[in-house]
Nucleic acid binder design. Structure first.
Lengths: 190, 190
DNA sequence: GTCTATACTGAGATAGAC
DNA sequence: GTCTATCTCAGTATAGAC
């Protein structure tokens, strides 16, 4: 693996652990075993490197989600598989966490991949829900209104992102698991 | 209002906007209109001041939640009122956001009030759900299992916390509202 | 209680040698 | 491509005068 890739990987780890504001170029270099000059040769600066790192993490996140959602089974089964997949709960979401970084949200270039990732994730989940509705597995409506799959997809992603928040606050994965269980119980009650 | 209180208020604002790592003592002082000496007279340092600020925000959060949850009405009505309450969605949760701050999570003193706040919020919501179950408003069970009110409470708080994440990523409150709508649709479907 | 001065470290980047 | 030197400013705090 080239030095450039090592820098990207180190940046990905540090952005996950400490966020953008909490990550210094020097820390990235040290973890990558690269010097100052090396980093500034490959990247224009901290922002440029962070952008490469975020894009890479975004790709992986979407690929991992798709891997669960593409398996055979009913919509609820596939969503359950996705929600119950093994996760490093206490580390949180490498993309979602960037949302709390003022320098990321304030910069359109840095926010764009974060936005796109979570938007596409919601769209993918909505697709799965649409399939479930079309096959009759999910009711056309809870009560009488049309099943709003876009809204429900947002709910599902929010439970994950919020579950991470609760787990990190508690210092334990338990509330994450509870939040997921509560959601699945509601889904199953149809 | 004394200088001390102005320092706490400024710290609360900045912690909300920029988190712990992203907030400097100097920035707090400037916003409070106080000098270096003044701050270090009233507080031992950044951590000490942050602790006072977080405790104050935690109090307010729990009081605001209780205000909604104590109104007359059914359990679902009260929870709906809480979820639909006016919020500065794009600012996120002043307590939940601290969860992404490495220096907060790593320090037991700083993490404690965050943990306690979200734990108590879940407990309060579980109480409301328990009441709804006892009065027969909520089914004793979706399907046949006992209604797990602790889990459902975690789901509700997670939807809020995750809703903030989605909204900040999108730069719009819309996905927050969708996530809440999706949850309420599921709750109403009982 | 508040101010100014001072100290030390780290962040973020540039310059030029190799 | 990578290294070392250097630069400037900000973060965090202490010291002592008023």
């Amino acid at each position: 693996m080239g030095t450039r890739d090592q820098l990207v990987d180190s940046a990905r780890e540090l952005l996950w652990e400490r966020g953008y504001v909490g990550t210094s170029p020097k820390a990235i270099q040290q973890r990558a075993g690269a010097g100052q000059g090396s980093m500034y040769h490959h990247f224009a600066g901290k922002k440029d490197l962070a952008l490469a790192a975020v894009r890479r993490s975004a790709e992986e996140l979407l690929a991992a989600a798709d891997a669960q959602l593409r398996t055979p089974g009913t919509a609820v089964e596939r969503i359950t598989a996705y929600l119950r997949r093994e996760r490093e709960v206490l580390k949180g979401c490498p993309i979602g966490r960037l949302t709390q970084d003022p320098d990321i949200v304030a910069d359109p270039d840095l926010r764009a991949p974060v936005d796109e990732t979570l938007t596409r994730l919601r769209a993918r989940l909505a697709e799965v829900l649409d399939e479930g509705r079309d096959t009759g597995e999910l009711p056309t409506s809870p009560n009488t209104a049309a099943l709003d799959t876009a809204a429900l997809a947002a709910t599902i992603v929010a439970v994950l992102q919020g579950g991470y928040v609760l787990a990190r606050a508690a210092g334990s994965p338990e509330p994450f698991d509870q939040a997921v269980s509560g959601l699945l119980a509601l889904l199953a009650a149809h």
